[in-house]
């Protein structure tokens, strides 16, 4: 136990960052709550408008649907990669890890731009399909939910892979070996012995991807072409097009509350500390 005056000197190290965060970040974000309840008038007007609007309802449904499908897609694809990396070690394993981390360093903006180039009306995919004589007129691959989902899964995939990888690397191979030697087939041993042990990693990955997807803006805005209005884009519409700060802020509060609820529910299944605070 550090002595009292010693504790003070440790707090001196903590306080600058903490103070800046509280004053310039926490206070402004709380300010959004205040706007939601006070502009244009004090009361619940904005929330009443929000609850009564079908457009808002649709936007929330789209947001949760896109986030959910993205999460499932990332978990499925990511599991395969994480499994292969942690169970079949070869000369190529370090390369695989590097390639998983690589997209992290390329900005979301550029990755979304790449998907526009690929999926557009006269994009590479459509041109290739037409060149091969497989289609007559271009397919609609973006400016719809499909395009948003493809690009979102691409952007979020590393967030799903890394927690699963950390988890799988800590799993001893002895259990699967034991199951196999007792006569279980490869798939049975995987399903009944290996898979349950990977649940903590799967859950942390799911939480990260879902929470980040809920509030995502760049990719849905670029690939959705205004037709897949997730809440974040809906908020910017309200504020930039209609200067409706009241409704925009109320929607922000709604999004924050939704995120907080997801975290609260997740806390029952996931070790939030390990998933967020002590991320490797």
């Amino acid at each position: 136990m550090p002595r009292m005056n010693e504790k003070v000197s440790y707090w001196m190290l903590v306080v600058p960052a903490l103070a800046i965060m509280v004053i310039f970040y926490i206070v402004p974000v709380l300010g959004i709550w205040k706007i939601a309840f006070t502009e244009p008038e004090t009361g619940l007007t904005n929330f009443v408008a929000m609850a009564g609007s079908n457009a808002v309802k649709t936007s929330f449904v789209i947001t949760f649907r896109v986030a959910a499908i993205t999460t499932i897609g990332c978990l499925f694809l990511g599991y395969i990669v994480a499994y292969a990396i942690s169970n079949y070690s070869s000369r190529l394993t370090p390369l695989m890890v590097a390639l998983v981390i690589l997209p992290f360093w390329v900005s979301v903006l550029i990755r979304s731009f790449s998907w526009i180039v690929l999926l557009g009306r006269s994009g590479i995919v459509n041109d290739a399909l037409k060149g091969a004589g497989l289609i007559e007129s271009p397919l609609r691959l973006m400016h719809n939910e499909l395009g948003v989902l493809i690009a979102m899964i691409h952007v979020m995939l590393p967030f799903a892979i890394l927690p699963m990888l950390t988890n799988m690397r800590g799993i001893s191979g002895a259990y699967v070996l034991a199951a196999r030697s007792l006569g279980a087939g490869e798939w049975t041993a995987f399903r009944q012995v290996y898979f349950p042990q990977t649940m903590p990693g799967v859950m942390s990955g799911a939480l990260l991807v879902f929470v980040l997807s809920l509030g995502f803006f760049v990719t849905p805005a670029l690939l959705g072409g205004g037709r897949v209005l997730m809440i974040s884009e809906y908020i910017t519409y309200q504020i930039q097009e209609f200067l409706n700060w009241g409704l925009g802020s109320a929607l922000s509060v709604g999004l924050l509350v939704a995120t907080a609820l997801v975290l609260l529910i997740a806390a029952r299944f996931v070790n939030l500390r390990a998933a967020l605070l002590e991320r490797k």
Binding site: V29, G215, L276
Partner: peptide, 27 residues
């Protein structure tokens, strides 16, 4: 207390970018 401080410091990871940007703008 320091554990709570660490949670406070990672809030920017959890708050949606558009929401925090509105906050920044007004402030």
């Amino acid at each position: 207390a320091s554990s709570i401080a660490r949670w406070v410091l990672i809030t920017p990871i959890l708050v949606p970018p558009v929401v925090q940007s509105l906050g920044f703008y007004r402030f």
